[in-house]
Design a protein around this nucleic acid. Sequence first.
DNA 1: AATGAATGAGGATTCATTCAT
DNA 2: GATGAATGAATCCTCATTCAT
Lengths: 193, 193, 193, 193
Amino acid sequence: MPKLGAEPIRRAALVKATIETVGEAGSLEVTVAQIARRAGMSSALAHHYFGSKEQIFLAAMRSILTLYGAEVRGALATAQDPESRLRAIVAASFAAGSFRRETISAWLNFYVLAQTNAEAHRLLRVYQRRLRSNLRHDLRVLVGPRAEAVARGLGAMIDGVYIRAALADGAPDRRYALDIVTEYLDRELEGTP
Amino acid sequence: MPKLGAEPIRRAALVKATIETVGEAGSLEVTVAQIARRAGMSSALAHHYFGSKEQIFLAAMRSILTLYGAEVRGALATAQDPESRLRAIVAASFAAGSFRRETISAWLNFYVLAQTNAEAHRLLRVYQRRLRSNLRHDLRVLVGPRAEAVARGLGAMIDGVYIRAALADGAPDRRYALDIVTEYLDRELEGTP
Amino acid sequence: MPKLGAEPIRRAALVKATIETVGEAGSLEVTVAQIARRAGMSSALAHHYFGSKEQIFLAAMRSILTLYGAEVRGALATAQDPESRLRAIVAASFAAGSFRRETISAWLNFYVLAQTNAEAHRLLRVYQRRLRSNLRHDLRVLVGPRAEAVARGLGAMIDGVYIRAALADGAPDRRYALDIVTEYLDRELEGTP
Amino acid sequence: MPKLGAEPIRRAALVKATIETVGEAGSLEVTVAQIARRAGMSSALAHHYFGSKEQIFLAAMRSILTLYGAEVRGALATAQDPESRLRAIVAASFAAGSFRRETISAWLNFYVLAQTNAEAHRLLRVYQRRLRSNLRHDLRVLVGPRAEAVARGLGAMIDGVYIRAALADGAPDRRYALDIVTEYLDRELEGTP
DNA sequence: AATGAATGAGGATTCATTCAT
DNA sequence: GATGAATGAATCCTCATTCAT
């Protein structure tokens, strides 16, 4: 039952299944067969569309980062002043779309993948650079020369909260995660116009 | 010529080799044979001593946490007042013994292992709890009711800085890492007696 | 826009592509997809026309042998006396149309196929029998009772030169190949009326 | 039941099994598992000892050529004059040890392998060069300036007879094979001192 | 204590072939 | 006629683990 235009559908299904499978397993040591099964197709077809397991992983990673990027852009769209922009960026990091069990676990695993895989490394760097640049932009207005330092700190803390969420039992607690970072930000913005 | 007391020596060699191998590979997907070779013995002997690959990993993880614990204890020994104790704890996290390429990478990988393995999970929780407890203890004196929040924040940031160091090119920059966390701490301690 | 009479064109294209692909790869381990791509169509269509990979190979083999047969017939057409007929047959074996890189390599590979495949085996036997019969026919007039032996020798030597050409670097040297066989023939015909 | 010094025994068994399996199948498309089974071990062990299927094939090829070389050396040992040396070399090519069903088929297949594999190519060239050099050496004394041409012719004819034996039904006919080449040689040596 | 020998189980990848459109 | 879609069946290779010595 081959439908025309199946490719993008299949690719999307595989990407989704990859994030779920890696997220559930908490490890990259999942088989292509597992991923394909969850996506409702044979592993041969997965290879047909992506060429290799590595490419499947990279596509999943790109998808996560793209989703996150969209989340940030969406949040920034409505924010008007620097401070609300800043808070929007931080909030976006823990938005319901991204801050989910499997996504977090997948995220952690892609961090590991980046040790080995050049493209994964590059993607993660782009994410970090973009995040830092966004933060710095608005921080300059608010904290002046401390902008660079605070941007670095925020970035690190967001990643730290993420990684720790991967260890937590039960569903990830967005409120809790957001609070930690927000308190830091509040403190830095204290006494700011 | 079997040496007396060979066992502890062999075990230590394997633990060291494991951290190096995982650190270099940037992944848990290393073979027991690789680890054993680096430790100068057959993979059969590695199994003889540890029973399984999993146990080898856990022993390596315990070793890292033990080393870190010793580092903290050593730092606390000379510190007298709460603030210097706090700073000592933070500094210990980025001490030369722990904040090394392979250790950082191994650390990240053990985070991943903790998703899957109950004992690894437990070990990491113990580390987090102990760190938080240490920080909170001294923070109470300094920031009162904010102690809990700052302790969480510091813990998260330390992990965040660690994870990001795993992505950096070249040798990890202790100064840079320490600065990020210290600035956060400074800010929180501002206006503190 | 299906063209009328597409079938023979498609089949010919596939046969040509098969010889080229096998010749270039130097092996029968080429995929139907590779052959089909070179022939400018989908592998599904290749199956549609030939039914199986095996049939594609056999068609290619028939094509080679048919071409060779035509080459011999053409050569014999102008030759008048037994000796020039003999020389024409030999020369045809190394004619520009047959003695080409891919054809030689394909030839060698079809020899291998004949170990496994009954039809390939049959085709090769027909070729050998026909060649021997042609040679013997003219040799009888020239060398009498030695005809049988010389025909066998010539046949073997032609195949040997072919197989060796498959190993040579660069383009196959027709002159060189022909010389070897011709010297043998000259010697046998020495002192012949 | 691991015996010490099993390696050379296992390797030899695999080489033997490879020649037999390829010989019987008449194709290189045999699986490592088939070869290993025939050699009485797991395919994993075959890989352990040889690293790859390719290396197994090359070892088998080396074995065939080594055996052939020994056969030639043995034949030359007793021969005194150039002519008997020459005849000994030719006879060695069809000696009982080398001119056997599977060996012949394996030989043909290795010819094919040499199209693709550099080391196989090299091995075959060494064989050809050595054979030609041996033949030329003795032919010089007997046929003078024709030595080069006759050496080439003999080499080609030996290969041709081999390849044709691969197509024959039933056990290879050493007598018949030897006769063809011998008649050629006789003719060339006619009228020689 | 120490290791070479050995393997079962598994996993990525390939490919001929089929089928609905 | 033509093809994209889809897969079952293989196959090479790896590796943790066991065991006899």
